[in-house]
Design a protein around this nucleic acid. Structure first.
Lengths: 207, 207
DNA sequence: CGTCGGATTAGGGTTTTCCCTAATGTCCCG
DNA sequence: CGGGACATTAGGGAAAACCCTAATCCGACG
């Protein structure tokens, strides 16, 4: 796994330098880009860390980049730091999920604290995603028939009822049931339900 | 149940009149207040509807009122409409959960659409709350002992293990278990787990 | 003092689940 | 064509859960 990194995208050279100094002297890995295009070329999926965006940049604007990333499923926390922001833009950014929207010139300590909050959120978010992906991959390893049985077990059906619905014998249902319990690493219906519900929220594709 | 109502809090008389006209001619119930104090006196808990707030008012400001309501557990959607807003205030409002933050003068149609969105969110939110409160009240009707057994059933323990943990006989566990299943209106462990998980999210006190 | 709710235990029977072994047929891949 | 994954069925026994009735004890309430 890569090291958590703050990606700073700003067309202003002095701002980029400032961030490089502010973050690296505080032991935080930082990479800077002068425009959205450069950033997108360097960004790899599942990169831990967060993103600091300027609003007005040549090419794609900060808000556009935010939308683009959201559509691509990138959920690293985003912090806006801009010189010429107005209220509608700030509202749009925060409504779209930005952690905060700060105006230049800014208080170093405040921005440092916000970056740390972003990194913390990302770590927490990533931790939960990992949990869900573990479940999701186990769920994906079920055969179609096992999935059909699983749905009905979750719904509270008895083996006898499941056998009727699927037009198979109770014995077969028992086998599928035992298999899926083993694959999902649970030993009771109660655990099974909880694990399955967890895996349904995070509908992310498993490797 | 009271009728969904838009509560407009603004110290500017002409703005209040404008909202009364705009909303009532569109068939939306509206009540206006010139300051936070007046609104708080009139507001009753569990009122369906939403709130339109001005930022700058004599006495408590819009942001302060928002925080006050949040602390009191009032979760009606809030729409800010203000004349002298700046970026930090807008960000604070939206981060605190406001649906939007609009500057005067505003587009009637846009604000009307936002108000309708607020009302829709409130209705949806209220619907889910009702579901959870049904579960919560049933959960509250359990005796302490039944709750202890419930926890362990949810955790996937066998009756034998539960009996050991609680230092009672298996027969007693069976009785408690049957009672709580009946009180919670479920007929299988699978349903039991799902109902209980639903009731835990919405940790609101039941009447 | 009688009554009622809550907690406890018991017996006895049915149903369901769980676990083991074992076998058959199909389909696909190397 | 052999092997492997998948789906299917079966028998049998142990364990657990479910359902019914019945009884005791205790504290609270009118």
């Amino acid at each position: 796994m890569r090291k958590p990194t703050v990606f700073v995208v700003d067309d202003d050279e002095s701002t980029r330098e400032l961030f490089r100094w502010l973050l690296s002297t505080n032991g935080i890995a930082v990479e800077t880009f002068c425009c959205a295009q450069d950033f997108l070329l360097a960004y790899r999926a599942n990169q831990p860390g967060c993103i600091v965006l300027d609003l007005r940049m040549p090419g794609m604007s900060g808000l556009e980049l935010q939308q683009h990333l959201t559509r691509r499923g990138v959920d690293n926390p985003i912090l806006f730091v801009t010189g010429e922001g107005n209220v509608p833009q700030a509202v749009a950014a925060v409504k779209a999920g930005a952690v905060d929207f700060i105006e230049k010139p800014f208080d170093y300590r405040q921005v440092l604290a916000l970056v740390r909050e972003c990194l913390a959120r990302d770590a927490e978010q990533r931790r939960r995603l990992d949990e869900r992906q573990g479940v999701a991959s186990r769920l994906a390893s079920l055969t179609p028939r096992e999935r059909e049985v699983l749905e009905r077990v979750i719904a509270g059906r008895l083996n006898r009822e499941i056998a009727e619905e699927l037009a198979i014998s109770i014995k077969t249902v028992e086998v599928h049931r035992a298999h899926l319990m083993e694959k999902l690493q649970v030993s009771s219906v109660a655990e099974l339900v909880q694990v399955t519900l967890l895996g349904q929220e995070g509908a992310a594709g498993a490797p």
